[in-house]
Write a protein that binds this DNA or RNA. Structure first.
Length: 196
DNA sequence: TGGCCGATATGCT
DNA sequence: GCATATCGGCCAA
C-alpha cells in the first residue's frame, strides 16, 4: 500500500540525525504553532565550525548544541531580534537555524505580530519568522516538538545549497539550504544549485 | 566594568 | 546601497 508521505508528523528521532541531513530534510516541511503554519523554505546548519555558537558562545549555547537534539534553541541578535533553532545530532554538537517560511495558515495572527507588513515578508528572515510565530526566549531548552508540530513534505523538493548569511567566519561552507525558486527565501537570494 | 561584535530588520538616499 | 537601532555574550583590563 502507498502511505502518503507527509501524513505522519516527525518525531524526536528525526533531530538525532547528522545536522546537515536534518537541515536539508527540513526544507519543504510544514511547521505549525497553534493556528500559525508555514512551509520551511530556508535553513542553515551549524555544528562545531568557527561560525557556530557552539564555538563562539561556548559558555551558553555550547551545552544545548553539544549534548542534545530536538530542543528549541532561541537566542537574541542585534538587540531586538530572536532566532529560532532546533538542536540536532545526538552524537555531537549541532543546530539548525530556521530562516524563512512560506506562510500557509494563521495569516491574520502573523500579520498582527508583524505589524502589517506584506505577506511575502511575514516570515522572510530568521528574526521575522520568530516574530511571526510568537517565539520567545523562554522556549529555549524546551523540546522543539512540545512547542511546534512538524510534518514532512509529500514529494521530493528541489534544494539549493549556498553560503550561510551574516557570518564572518567559515564563509566557505555551503550550509544554507533553500527551496529552489521560492519567493519566500530571504536575501541575499542563493544561486548555486545543490547536486545529489 | 567597559568595549566590541554579531547566525538582523528597517528605513532612507 | 548604506546607516543605525539595540542588547546579550564574551573577553580584556
Amino acid at each position: 500500500m502507498t502511505r502518503r508521505a507527509g501524513a505522519r508528523p516527525l518525531d524526536a528521532a528525526f533531530f538525532a540525525q547528522p545536522t546537515l541531513d536534518v537541515a536539508r530534510a527540513l526544507i519543504g516541511c510544514t511547521l505549525r504553532r497553534g493556528e500559525c503554519s508555514g512551509r520551511i523554505v530556508e535553513t542553515e546548519a551549524y555544528t562545531d565550525d568557527e561560525a557556530s555558537h557552539f564555538v563562539t558562545r561556548a559558555r551558553s549555547a555550547g551545552t544545548l548544541m553539544g549534548s542534545t537534539s530536538g530542543l528549541a534553541y532561541v537566542y537574541s541578535i542585534y538587540g531586538a531580534h530572536l532566532c529560532l533553532n532546533v538542536t540536532t545530532d545526538a552524537r555531537g554538537p549541532g543546530a539548525v537555524l530556521l530562516r524563512a517560511l512560506e506562510p500557509l495558515g494563521g495569516l491574520e495572527v502573523m500579520r498582527r505580530r508583524r505589524n502589517g507588513v506584506r505577506d511575502r515578508d511575514l516570515c522572510r528572515g530568521p528574526g521575522r519568522l520568530a516574530q511571526a510565530l510568537g517565539v520567545t526566549r523562554a522556549m529555549s531548552g524546551e523540546p522543539f516538538l512540545g512547542v511546534f508540530e512538524l510534518e514532512p513534505p509529500g514529494t521530493r523538493v528541489a534544494l539549493i545549497a549556498s553560503p550561510r548569511v551574516g557570518i564572518s567566519k567559515a564563509r566557505e561552507l555551503p550550509w544554507r539550504f533553500s527551496l529552489s525558486g521560492s519567493p519566500f527565501v530571504s536575501d541575499p537570494r542563493p544561486r548555486a544549485p545543490e547536486r545529489g
